[in-house]
Computed example of a mutant assay.
Amino acid sequence: MPEEFTEQELHNLAMNVVGKELEKEGFEFMTVNSKLKKDPQFVCLKNKKLHFVIVRAISYPNNPATYDVTYMEIVKQHALNFKARTYYAGVGIANANDYSKAVIKGDKYIINFNGITEI
Score class of each variant (00 low, 15 high):
residue 96 A to P: 05
residue 38 K to N: 08
residue 18 V to Y: 00
residue 48 K to Y: 01
residue 48 K to R: 13
residue 80 L to F: 05
residue 13 L to F: 06
residue 45 L to N: 00
residue 23 E to G: 11
residue 45 L to F: 06
residue 98 D to V: 09
residue 114 N to S: 08
residue 99 Y to H: 14
residue 28 E to W: 06
residue 58 I to K: 15
residue 74 I to E: 14
residue 37 K to D: 13
residue 93 I to M: 12
residue 25 E to C: 14
residue 47 N to L: 04
residue 113 F to G: 09
residue 94 A to W: 15
residue 68 D to V: 10
residue 35 K to R: 15
residue 113 F to Q: 10
residue 54 I to T: 15
residue 65 A to R: 15
residue 91 V to C: 09
residue 113 F to R: 10
residue 86 T to A: 03
residue 79 A to W: 14
residue 59 S to I: 12
residue 88 Y to S: 09
residue 92 G to M: 07
residue 4 E to F: 08
residue 116 I to R: 06
residue 73 E to R: 15
residue 119 I to A: 08
residue 74 I to H: 05
residue 99 Y to C: 09
residue 113 F to L: 03
residue 76 K to Y: 01
residue 81 N to L: 13
residue 23 E to P: 00
residue 75 V to R: 02
residue 33 N to W: 07
residue 35 K to A: 09
residue 60 Y to C: 07
residue 100 S to C: 07
residue 113 F to N: 10
residue 72 M to V: 08
residue 54 I to P: 05
residue 24 K to V: 13
residue 18 V to N: 02
residue 119 I to C: 12
residue 104 I to D: 10
residue 21 E to G: 07
residue 61 P to G: 14
residue 61 P to Q: 07
residue 115 G to Q: 07
residue 6 T to A: 13
residue 71 Y to I: 00
residue 73 E to V: 05
residue 10 L to M: 11
residue 97 N to V: 04
residue 115 G to C: 07
residue 97 N to W: 04
residue 91 V to A: 07
residue 1 M to R: 11
residue 76 K to C: 07
residue 93 I to P: 04
residue 52 F to G: 00
residue 65 A to L: 05
residue 63 N to Q: 09
residue 14 A to I: 02
residue 8 Q to D: 04
residue 81 N to M: 10
residue 76 K to P: 01
residue 116 I to W: 01
residue 83 K to A: 14
residue 26 G to D: 12
residue 23 E to Y: 10
residue 75 V to K: 09
residue 54 I to E: 09
residue 31 T to R: 14
